[in-house]
């Protein structure tokens, strides 16, 4: 567990450099935690990140954080690279042979594309929920236990983990009597909550959500949005959404992406136009393009 050690180190160093612990008057641990929180500590940082598919630059120069215990949203028109950026954070883009990431993607201060970083370990700490609910064609229980099992968690902890994960995804009461039934028998909204439970079961720090509600009806969407508000107490969440209202409702911070014609390749490349607190993005954006988009004049 190379990351574990590095993370500890990062936490150590962040503590020692945080203003509270440097302050001789209040050296208590609680004090430092509060100070860090009010500063909204970034769990993940993207610095000048560009993602290429072969020679095509799909998205360029993205700089934004995922703050601890916040929901960070990415909005923008189709094809502007939101999902691409999201997938570069837990190295899902590694699965596409031609994909390449430039710039720095860091988690707890560690370069996630560093030479010794194991993408498998990264994905355990940065979980993902996909656009279409994709439960394994197995029982509900097996869906939850698969991640912990391959992570080497002891069998006697599985039952607790199943209940805990399903509860935190607000689906326990609906499925507790049929844990051994196929997950494919659940409704779309239930399947998506099961997928959230599955992602939570590996105890990640960060949850990435790629348009998690796009295949769901408004009621199921509402439940997932409520769920996200609860989840952010324990996790840091980044969500990609096409739905501006959703971003406005659920997120604390928001990045607006758009596409621009790349002079080099003559193809449209995505870029981050503006990143700010959600309230500001929707009420008083500093960029005209953002304003046009959020007011519905374009996109």
């Amino acid at each position: 567990m190379a990351i574990e050690a590095q993370r500890m180190q990062a936490e150590e160093s962040s503590k020692s450099t945080s203003p509270a612990s440097g302050d001789a008057v209040s050296p208590s641990v609680e004090g430092s935690a509060v100070a860090v929180k009010s500063e909204s500590e970034a769990v993940v940082r993207l610095d000048d990140v560009s993602v290429y598919y072969g020679s095509f630059r799909a998205v360029r120069d993205v700089t934004m954080p995922i703050n601890k215990n916040e929901i960070t949203a990415m909005i923008g028109p189709s094809g502007c690279g939101k999902s691409t950026v999201l997938r570069s954070i837990n190295r899902m883009n590694d699965l596409i042979p031609t994909a390449r990431v430039e710039g720095l993607v860091s988690y707890m201060g560690i370069d996630l594309y560093g030479e010794d970083v194991d993408p498998v370990e990264v994905r355990r700490r940065i979980g993902m929920v996909f656009q279409k609910p994709n439960p394994f064609p197995k029982s509900i229980r097996d869906n939850i236990t698969y991640g912990p099992r391959i992570a080497g968690i002891a069998k006697n902890e599985w039952d607790d983990l199943v209940e805990q994960s399903l509860r935190s995804a607000a689906i326990w009461d609906e499925v507790k009597d049929r844990l051994d039934d196929s997950a494919l028998g659940l409704s779309g909204g239930q399947q998506q909550r099961l997928c959230i439970a599955r992602a939570v079961a590996t105890k990640p720090d960060v949850l990435l959500m790629d348009e998690p509600c796009s295949a769901l009806d408004p009621i199921a969407t509402g439940r997932i949005e409520d769920l996200m508000q609860e989840l952010k107490n324990d996790y840091s969440i980044m969500i990609v959404t096409h739905n501006m209202q959703q971003a406005a409702r659920v997120s604390d911070r928001c990045g607006f992406f758009t596409t621009e014609l790349d002079s080099q390749s003559d193809r449209r490349t995505g870029q981050l136009v503006e990143f700010d607190e959600t309230e500001k993005i929707f009420s008083n954006p500093s960029d005209e393009r953002t304003e046009n988009y959020v007011t519905g004049r374009f996109g």
């Binding site: 994709n134 394994f136 590996t202």
Partner: peptide
């Protein structure tokens, strides 16, 4: 989607 689901939980 099945591959992604499995990779996504750290397989």
């Amino acid at each position: 989607s099945l591959r992604e689901a499995a990779y996504g939980v750290g397989a």
